[in-house]
Simulated scan of single mutants.
Amino acid sequence: MFRIGVHNRAFTRRAFGQLRFNSTKAPGEFTWVDYFQLKKQNSRLNMFSGAVTGVLGSALTLGYLGNIEIDVEKPIFGFDPLMVMGGTVILGGLVGYLVGPFMGSAVFKMMHRSKMAQFEVRNKEFLQRLRRNRPDPSSQSFSNPIPDYYGEKIYSLKDYQQWLRDCNAFRRKAKEFL
Rank of each mutant, 00 (worst) to 15 (best):
F2I: 11
R3E: 09
I4Y: 07
H7D: 12
R9K: 14
R13L: 15
R13S: 11
A15F: 13
Q18M: 06
F21N: 04
F21G: 10
T24A: 06
K25F: 02
K25D: 02
A26T: 07
P27N: 07
W32Y: 07
W32D: 13
Q37S: 08
K39E: 06
K39I: 03
N42F: 11
S43Q: 11
N46I: 09
A51M: 14
V52L: 15
V55W: 09
L56G: 09
G57D: 06
V72T: 05
V72R: 07
V72Q: 07
E73G: 10
E73T: 15
P75W: 00
P75T: 13
G78R: 00
D80M: 13
D80L: 08
V84C: 08
M85K: 12
P101Y: 03
F102E: 01
M103G: 08
S105P: 00
M116N: 00
Q118S: 07
N123I: 01
R129P: 00
L130A: 04
L130T: 01
R132H: 05
R132D: 00
P135D: 05
Q140A: 05
Q140E: 13
S143D: 09
P147R: 04
Y149Q: 14
Y149L: 12
Y150T: 12
G151L: 08
K153T: 13
I154F: 07
Y155H: 15
L157R: 15
W163Q: 05
R165E: 10
R165I: 10
C167Q: 07
R171Q: 08
E176D: 07
